[in-house]
């Protein structure tokens, strides 16, 4: 590590922060995945977390996931809020007994000295109505700032997690702002270099924030989105049905849990866009959430009947 150039320092470089976390969790035996190639509201939706949390097979993975929260867009004007940001996600299944220590050491790895900083675990139970999931845990504080969420998954897609997985989610931008000591996300140094070669977060993403805020709040084609929601829902159901083993086959395994789940992810994101456009009333809102949850549950059930879900032929 000593030979690493200064611009890789997680306290100076946004990408240095991501790379340091990846390296740290790789050392802990995690597979380092790349972001899932679909729009989603949080890293938890990645099949590497949602689906892999189900079933008996041990699993350790870490990845950065772009997260889209259409409603959080602020046209690039709010220094703390984005409609597209990064989460760093770690899942350890079953959770090792020293998972809290591993987490604290990851903070040390990115330069947070525990003799100087006040690290605290404050009750914060997690529930995802759209995923039919819940767990107990904390928000992790560093000097009064929430820098991560820590959850022991108890249920996903309506199924008990067995074994229980530990999930860590780092809010990368917020963490980086603290480490770099900047007051606006857009001022983050992305590549850690100085002078001409310095690239800021704003240079990369500010335009996107402005354009997508316009899109999310004003122009997203709602008729098309309603259609996409219905299509994704129907496709999910179709693939779930199509993936059932042929009659008479003496293998009960499901054959298309993953493609079906992709459609559930899509439905969820489309719903978020419709919600941002303000075209879903309060009462309808509940029923849309319920529809996505039904998809997620059905996908979870199918996943449990795949090899990844622990089913053997």
């Amino acid at each position: 590590m000593t030979s690493e150039p200064a611009h890789m320092n997680p306290a100076r470089s946004f990408q240095g922060l991501i790379l340091t976390l990846q390296r740290y969790w790789a050392e802990q035996g995690c597979v380092i995945l790349q972001p899932y190639d679909m729009e989603m509201g949080a890293g938890t939706f990645h099949p590497a977390t949602t689906l892999r949390a189900l079933g008996p097979r041990p699993w350790r993975a870490a990845y950065a996931q772009p997260s889209r929260r259409p409603k959080d867009g602020r046209y690039g004007e709010n220094p703390n809020r984005l409609q597209h940001y990064y989460q760093f996600q770690v899942i350890l299944k079953p959770n090792p007994p020293d998972i809290q220590d591993l987490y604290v050491k990851s903070l040390e790895a990115i330069g947070i000295d525990t003799a100087l900083h006040d690290i605290r675990f404050v009750e914060d139970d997690w529930e995802s109505p759209t995923l039919g999931a819940w767990g107990l845990g904390w928000e992790c504080w560093c000097d009064g700032m929430e820098v991560s969420q820590f959850t022991y998954f108890q249920q996903v897609a309506g199924f008990e997690c067995s074994p229980v997985a530990g999930e860590l989610t780092y809010g990368l931008e917020r963490l980086a702002m603290y480490l770099q000591g900047v007051e606006s996300i857009y001022d983050l140094n992305f590549n850690g270099l100085e002078g001409d070669r310095k690239v800021t977060y704003g240079e990369i993403f500010k335009q996107a924030e402005q354009e997508f805020s316009r899109h999310n709040f004003e122009y997203a084609d709602t008729e098309m989105l309603f259609r996409h929601f219905r299509d994704a829902e129907a496709a999910c159901r179709k693939y779930l049905a199509d993936g059932e083993p042929k009659e008479g086959a003496n293998d009960n395994r499901h054959l298309m849990a993953l493609p079906a789940y992709d459609q559930a992810i899509k439905a969820s994101h489309v719903f978020n866009l419709l919600d941002a456009r303000g075209v879903i009333s309060v009462t309808e809102r509940q029923s849309y959430i319920l529809r996505v949850r039904e998809l997620a549950k059905a996908c979870g059930a199918a996943w449990l009947r795949t090899e990844g879900g622990g089913e053997v032929a």
Binding site: H117, D118, M145
Partner: peptide
């Protein structure tokens, strides 16, 4: 006033600084 859980090696300056940052952001909101 904040209540921390640490006798910090810098007398708490870093902890105070961090908390002030968050308070500032919240009050700005």
């Amino acid at each position: 006033l904040l209540v921390s859980n640490l006798v910090a090696s810098d007398g708490g300056a870093t902890i105070i600084g961090g908390n002030e940052r968050v308070v500032r952001a919240r009050l700005s909101d």
